[in-house]
Design a protein around this nucleic acid. Sequence first.
DNA 1: TGTTATTGATTGATCAGTCAATCAAAGATA
DNA 2: TATCTTTGATTGACTGATCAATCAATAACA
Lengths: 212, 212
Amino acid sequence: MPRIGMEPLRRKALVDATLRTIGQQGSLDVTMSEIAREAGVSPALAHHYFGSKQQLLVATIRSLLARLRTDAVAALENVETPRERLSAIIRVSFQADQFAPETVAAWLAFYVEAQRSEEVRRLLIIYARRLRSNLLDSLERLCPPDDAARIAEGVAAMIDGLYIRQSLRSAPIGSTASVTLTEDYLDLQLRPFLRQDEPGTLAPNPSHRRGE
Amino acid sequence: MPRIGMEPLRRKALVDATLRTIGQQGSLDVTMSEIAREAGVSPALAHHYFGSKQQLLVATIRSLLARLRTDAVAALENVETPRERLSAIIRVSFQADQFAPETVAAWLAFYVEAQRSEEVRRLLIIYARRLRSNLLDSLERLCPPDDAARIAEGVAAMIDGLYIRQSLRSAPIGSTASVTLTEDYLDLQLRPFLRQDEPGTLAPNPSHRRGE
DNA sequence: TGTTATTGATTGATCAGTCAATCAAAGATA
DNA sequence: TATCTTTGATTGACTGATCAATCAATAACA
């Protein structure tokens, strides 16, 4: 069986298995044995490649972040206007693979781990900052900096809030409904800054423009 | 040492110690020994009164919920108008003791545990439902039911989102800023339903009315 | 005496991490 | 081509530590 050049394959398999195991179990309390079994290798091999469980976890978070970044970059290319870029950012956050129960559970578990591990905390802060600065870039083209900062904070909070509520799975809000809710918030916040000659600006309520 | 009638005292001491330990550690990975030490008793006594670690955790969540309920009831009594009740609900959510880092960390940890334990999940759903129905009661007096449901969802998401972002402690938003952000959202959403003869209805932006 | 409170000591299970050994392939040598 | 050497891949078996849970024993009360 042993072919050479297995390292990258095994590393990827183990990271993916970690994510899957954590997602299924909904917690970081997963054993190296479970992960290794899921990846189809022995626990000893996982230690061989990653040194420790903590390092495997960190590698897994990095992979989550990388996936999110890839999705975001893809969603933002060829999108020019600030308002459309904002919509793209929101759409990515609630995109199917990011909003899947296992992914949400994994994110949640990592937030808890961030309370203990400085390294995990740093990684999650990177995510928060990236979201924030993506939002700010576009918002500052649409309104004054103070308002941009405030609105970015609100949108980010709403995205994270819809995420965590998803994790409970009581009265789950769908992906499209989440997008709608966030878009409505954005529309309302931006309305005072719209040029008044645009149509529809004073419609009483924007909430039902998109399908639920 | 042994006096009779210790049971209620010990139970409370252990539940409080559990909350404190989880809050400090930022995770449910706390040992019975740590909890017992924090409460000033032996680990065996914790088992004696609660039977198992899981039951002690559940009792701790119940106590969190009870505290929240007490705060909410207190905040809502003598508050009559729907709009003021909404403000009271928001204020309670970000009240100092609820927004303290240890409390936030504990809530977060319990959200993760809800992925594994049906009982914990049920308890957290109770919280989510209570928040939702409190919001709905007032909102339905201010706007049509469809909009009330949508706005309640948005406010709840924003509250939970500000909470979870607090747990990361990067660029932490203060309690007052969180209240402001949520209130602004509410104001904007409700504006279309305000009676037009009220003053200030069309002011361009409500964001700086309260101190940051 | 019987009941409640309390603990130290112990058990049994679980797990992360280690290690020595095995296996297969890729050169290297002749 | 046949044989030796090296190196990467892989595992089973083991260790040491940790921890929830149990229990028998003790101490204070009624």
